[in-house]
Design a protein around this nucleic acid. Structure first.
Lengths: 154, 154
DNA sequence: GTCATTGCAAATACTTTGCAAATCA
DNA sequence: TGATTTGCAAAGTATTTGCAATGAC
């Protein structure tokens, strides 16, 4: 486990990453702005909010001619997540999706297409969240609205 | 894929399985009441609402001296799920949990212990669920309240 | 007896890890 | 230069599948 250092100065929730100053952002997160981290950050944050799997980001990196291995993709995604630049979402017990929007919001999960998209406008409100079990505190509340296409019924 | 037949007469949501009539329940779901299906159904439904992983059920079966293979555990869990006797929950992108309560309710997920428990009383209400994307219908809304112990902070 | 079901072992999908080579400050 | 990071290949974990043997009716 010599990879994946816990960054000291982790960013706080809801940070928005500009398409510039990536270098500074990485440094602020305690991560050296290396070629692959810069390139991956660019891919992740340049296009607005996204939900990517490791494999998808790997493909995009290949398409963009960014030299990077799948192992590095995984390491980087986790480093970014630990740094608060990404958020991991568990919708599908098969792969992990990483969300570039770390703010408070919820998701649609499109069954069949295995795709995650944001619920717009943060419309959803969850009421009456119960007391967590004894000695526990709530770390996050996730709402997943699973949808399927009206045709092509599974 | 000669295993895992889609049962014809799938049970409707919210069915409660009594500790008896397992045989009839299985038949009703289009599944032959075989030794292992009966035994697994017994393990699953006799003790009230539970959230089990395949591996956990496998252990329980071994402890109960039920002769069954892990492959059959997986097949059976999926057959029961397709039949509406179980519900699969994705909380942790690592393993799938199966819930014996198929009714409308939500979950706590205890980080660290990797354990799923029901939110009591169906207290949670989700408001303002937005329109699904075009040509899509909502199949389910899942709320996961992630909790962690106050001590032992991760 | 026939067809569904089971179990094994091999295969698959995703993710992690050890370690040597390359890179960054 | 010295510490971090990368990449490869191997390992690991959860799950699925092919197919011969077994079991249900």
């Amino acid at each position: 486990m010599e990879d994946r250092p816990k960054p000291a100065g982790a960013a706080t929730d809801g940070v928005r990453i500009g398409s510039t100053d990536l270098s500074a952002t990485l440094r602020g997160a305690g991560l050296r702005p290396t070629r692959q981290r810069m390139a991956l950050a660019e891919l992740l944050f340049a296009k607005g909010d996204r939900h990517v799997s490791a494999e998808r980001l790997y493909e995009e990196a290949r398409e963009a001619k960014v030299p990077v291995s799948l192992a590095t993709i995984y390491n980087t995604l986790h480093q970014f997540t630990d740094a608060g630049l990404l958020r991991a979402i568990a919708v599908d017990s098969a792969r992990t999706y990483f969300d570039t929007n770390t703010g408070d919001h919820h998701h649609f999960f499109i069954e069949g297409k295995e795709e995650v998209i944001d619920v717009p406008d943060d419309a959803i409100k969850v009421e009456n969240i119960p007391q967590p079990p004894d000695g526990m505190e709530i770390s996050r509340v996730d709402v997943i609205v699973r949808v399927r296409s009206l045709t092509n019924s599974s």
